[in-house]
Every structure is written in C-alpha cells, then in structure tokens.
C-alpha cells in the first residue's frame, strides 16, 4: 500500500478533532483504496463499476457516521479494512443469496492498485435528501453543502446550534442507512 498507516492515522486523529482539511485528505485517500478494492472484488463477479462506487460511497458514509468507534490508541488500517470487509459481505449477501459464502481470506487483502477514475455512483443525492425530514435537509444543506457555519445556519432557521448539529448528525445517519438498504434490494 502506498500511503502508510502512520499517515492515515495522523489524518484520522486530526479529523476526529474537527479538522476539515485533514478529514478531506483522509476521505480522498480512502476512497481511492476502497474503489480499487471493491472493483477487484465486484468486477470479477460480473458486477459493474457503478456498483463498486455505490459501495465506496456507502463505506464513506458508514465511516463518517461511525467515526467515533475508531480508538486512537489502536492502528487505523485494520479499522478501515474491517468496515470495508463488513460492508462488502453485507452487500453481496443482500444483492444475491448465492454469494453468501465469501471466502474471508480473499476479502481481507486490501493491497490493490490505487485507482483514480472520475467516479460516480448510482445514488441520487437530491433524491436521498428529499427522503429526509425537512429540518434535517436544511441543516445539511446549509452547513455541509453550502458551507455556512453552524451559528449562521442556526440563525437562518431560527433554531439553536445544538439543534442544527443534532439534525446534521441524524440526517447523515439516515442517509447512510438508506444507502445501505436501497442498493438492489
């Protein structure tokens, strides 16, 4: 693997402290690994690159909404691998029963070529957002998409800052759950 454990871990530690730039860099690196990993696993079984990208995005969302489960006293890569592997197995199980027996040893090996294609999934963000309650939609739109601060978003929606934070958190969790259920179910 090109990027090493120490680099990824230090990005993750900064991300958990709320550093957006470090987090963005981490997500970038991870998305490349995940893309290469899922393409190897899925294309060989006659699945499409779009499906692989669906899974990349599902894992990124899962990592985001469950990032608090990373223990900074432990290495980062096994944590990421475990999520990628869990989501792959879950995906294969729910998309086709016949794939229920995935040989785990093959799945574990993440060391594949880094792939940097312009990648797009089958998910429609607009549609996903519309499935959320309105206050969650607005909180995510203002803070996570338009880039307003939490304080500004609170003022615009005349709610409290903590309400904005809660709505972002719940909204992204709901998005992650929808993405994990809608793929070819």
């Amino acid at each position: 693997m090109a990027a090493n454990e120490a680099e990824l871990k230090s990005l993750m530690v900064k991300a958990l402290e709320g550093e957006s730039l470090a987090y963005r860099a981490l997500l970038d690196v991870m998305s490349r690994y995940l893309r290469a990993f899922f393409r190897v696993k899925l294309l060989g079984q006659g699945r499409s690159a779009t499906e692989a990208e669906d899974l990349v995005q599902e894992v990124l969302l899962a990592i985001h909404t469950r990032r608090h489960t990373f223990d900074p006293d432990k290495p980062f890569t096994p944590w990421m691998h475990a999520i990628a592997r869990y989501k792959l197995i879950d995906y294969l199980r729910r998309t086709r029963g016949a794939y229920a027996d995935v040989p785990l040893d093959e799945v574990i090996d993440l060391a594949v070529d880094v792939d940097t294609g312009q990648a797009e999934s089958g998910h429609d963000l607009q549609k996903l957002m519309k499935s959320l309650p309105e206050k969650m939609q607005r909180a995510i739109q203002y803070v996570k998409i338009d880039g307003l601060s939490v304080a500004e978003a609170a003022k615009r929606t005349s709610t409290s800052e903590s309400a904005i934070k809660v709505n972002i958190h719940r909204g992204l969790k709901a998005l992650a759950a929808t993405v994990a259920r809608e793929e070819k179910s």
Partner: peptide
C-alpha cells in the same frame, strides 16, 4: 459534503 464543517 462529509468533510465540510466536520464536528469534533
């Protein structure tokens, strides 16, 4: 989207 204004 995920990395914009990320909360600690």
């Amino acid at each position: 989207m995920l990395s914009t204004n990320v909360e600690p």
